[in-house]
């Protein structure tokens, strides 16, 4: 946890420097152009907090994600899926007892080679220089091609008006309108302020590690170098940037 904070202090510092140089141009330039954000989830640490929903609640509150009871019309940015389903394991009996039948966190992988971006007919979804796969909700026409293209089921479509299903509404972040697609934005609005994603900050067990993969000294690079990690469906060539440390 403290490691994540340290990483962020460094990032905030460089963001201020970039803002200073950008000020001459009449606006601050984005500070994150040379970074590659990624996430590592320490699955065992996460499982220690059985039934914990801190990251899910924090994310869904910060982004006005509605709680729609009808499973067909559900909208979700981060949620839990059984380990066997997440990693498409055919024979669950052979899974280590520590993980068998347990649930792991899933959300947008912010792929390095995202199929959703490739298919979007209006460039309403695109990959930023820092690796965030972003959505422009103003431009989305609601064709749902990206939903079909995502091999991880990370994208939700607003089949109904989400507003009646909001538990709390924050004015810090917009809601969505009916008929557009949405998903995890890696808290780009928080990254801009030099803050870590809401889920990472909310995790009481320090199970979520966020950082810059291009920085060889970053905590996430050190963790990935030291421990064995897996990714979802790496064989598809999408190069997901969410690592599950087993």
């Amino acid at each position: 946890m403290s490691a994540t904070r340290r990483c962020f202090l460094r990032m905030a510092g460089s963001a201020a420097a970039a803002a200073a140089t950008g000020a001459a141009l009449g606006c601050a330039s984005p500070a994150a152009a040379t970074r590659r954000w990624a996430m590592a989830i320490d699955v065992r640490k996460c499982l220690e907090l059985d039934g914990c929903r801190a990251c899910i609640d924090a994310c869904h509150q910060a982004h006005n994600v509605p709680a729609i009871p009808d499973r067909a019309h559900e909208v979700k940015w981060i949620w839990k899926e059984p380990f066997e389903r997440t990693f498409a394991i055919e024979d669950p009996d052979t899974v280590t007892a520590a993980l068998r039948g347990r649930e792991v966190l899933v959300f947008c992988n912010h792929c390095d080679n995202p199929p959703c971006v490739r298919v979007c007919p209006t460039q309403a979804t695109w990959k930023r220089d820092d690796g965030v796969v972003a959505i422009d909700e103003h431009r989305c026409i609601g064709c749902r091609y990206c939903v079909a293209a995502c091999p991880y089921g990370s994208r939700s479509f607003n089949f109904v008006d989400p507003r009646p299903f909001l538990v709390h509404t924050t004015s810090e972040y917009p809601t969505r309108t009916r008929g557009v697609v949405e998903k995890c934005n890696l808290c780009e609005e928080r990254l801009a302020k030099g803050q870590p994603p809401a889920c990472v900050r909310a995790c009481p067990g320090g199970a979520m590690l966020f950082g810059d993969l291009r920085d060889p000294d970053s905590e996430i690079r050190k963790t990935l170098a030291a421990r064995y990690s897996i990714r979802r469906k790496p064989e598809l060539g999408t190069r997901p940037q969410v690592y599950y440390v087993i």
Binding site: D50, G51, C52, A58, A198
Partner: peptide
């Protein structure tokens, strides 16, 4: 989509207190 801030300042923002069950794994 854009939310009108309420005059009373009753804006919910930031993560709520983590809710977790008492039983550790």
């Amino acid at each position: 989509c854009h939310v009108v801030p309420t005059a009373t300042g009753a804006i919910v923002s930031g993560p709520a207190a983590p809710s977790r069950s008492s039983r550790p794994g």
